[in-house]
Amino acid sequence: MSSTHVLTIDDPYRLGHRGPNLARGHGGGGPATKRVIVGYGFWLFLLSDIVIFACLFAAYAVLAQATAGGPTAKQLYELDRVAWETACLLASSFFCGLATIAVAKRNQLLTQLALLATGLTGLAFILLEVSEFTALSRQGYGPTRSAFLTGFFTLVGCHGVHVTAGLLWLGTMMAQFFAKGFRPDIGRRFLCFSMFWHFLDVVWVAIFSLVYLVGTRL
């Protein structure tokens, strides 16, 4: 017994060694900490969400040429606006990163300011996207025009719905920090929120490259 005890302290992960891994949540180390469990579960959720986006990307790719006599991607996409959208969303993620530092430092004012900046830049992104969608619809190029536009609106719109839901979540996160302070359970929720927010960036990078950049080239 005592020898295993020594192992736990010295080298719990036992990387590169045979024998049981004695770190908590790994191999034989017993249940992981709550923070690990919550973060891990949320990672799995994000992976499943990525599968949803993968299906929408696949559908878009299948339907991208099916313009049914309507406009093509090249005629519709405006890269200027997309560049601004990207800037807003990446800035939002940066502010979210600052908020993580402020939370780690238990600084209420900085946390609230950083989260507010996260929210405002996120909101700017959504407004830009809405303006793009309404402009397209006004010209008669809404999602019902062709299968290509169906795929486009659904993929980009699904990301937009995620960002909008994220903004609602962000609001409740700010309220929780304000009303309840830096409790461990709220800290874990914020860990999930920040993962969600960065994940939306990753999806956006894929949309930016595979939809907009490729679309304007082809």
Binding site: L63, A66, A68, P143, A147, T150, T154
Partner: peptide, 18 residues
């Protein structure tokens, strides 16, 4: 659902659906 509720064209037989 989008096809049925909002007139999208993922799987319809018109407008390029598949």
């Amino acid at each position: 659902t989008l096809d049925r509720y909002l007139g999208f064209h993922f799987f319809t037989i018109e407008a390029g659906g598949n």
